[in-house]
């Protein structure tokens, strides 16, 4: 049998899973852990709706082999929350009107989280480049960029 057993930290807790070598991280997280925040938008790496954090860096859930989650720190959009409350980026997306149909929102939140971890005070241009792999059909991106700016501002 070719299945692989993996162990990793998921949204702060140690977990394990058995996955097929051809299975992607996206389906593992959605189907085995019921974390349906990350979405299947294209399955080809072009839309960003499946974005997750691997060891703090944003990556595509659809093109990351589930087997390579082994030993890593994995965070999904569900893991961006601050306990029961929304995390900074999530709250900003809500507040700035950056959520319409919301299908792209988890991917945007994850991409933004990675961006802000690397550039805590990003320029608008850095934000736009940081989100260039996340497609949105509803918002035109304006409010999303604004939300990331808001989330980056230091808390008074």
């Amino acid at each position: 049998m070719s299945d692989v057993t993996i162990a990793f930290r998921l949204n702060g807790r140690m977990v394990s899973a058995t996955v097929a070598p051809t299975q992607a991280a996206l389906e593992c997280l959605r189907d085995q852990f019921a974390l349906t925040g990350a979405k299947l938008g294209c399955g080809e790496g072009e839309c960003g709706a499946c974005a997750i954090l691997l060891d703090g860096q944003a990556a595509l859930g659809c093109l990351t082999p589930a087997a390579d989650l082994d030993g890593r720190e994995v965070r999904t959009v569900e893991g961006l929350r601050d306990g029961p409350a929304l995390g900074r980026i999530q709250a900003a997306l809500v507040h700035e009107g950056a959520v319409q149909c919301g299908f792209c929102t988890p991917g945007m939140a994850v991409a933004a989280a990675a961006l802000l971890a690397e550039h805590p005070a990003p320029t608008v241009e850095q934000i736009r480049r940081g989100l260039e792999g996340n497609l949105c059909r509803c918002t035109g991106y304006v409010a999303i960029v604004q939300a990331v700016q808001t989330a980056a501002e230091p808390t008074p």
């Binding site: 790496g45 260039e132 792999g133």
Partner: peptide, 9 residues
């Protein structure tokens, strides 16, 4: 190259 999400891998 591609997008930030691809560049990490």
């Amino acid at each position: 190259f591609a997008s930030p999400l691809v560049r990490t891998r």
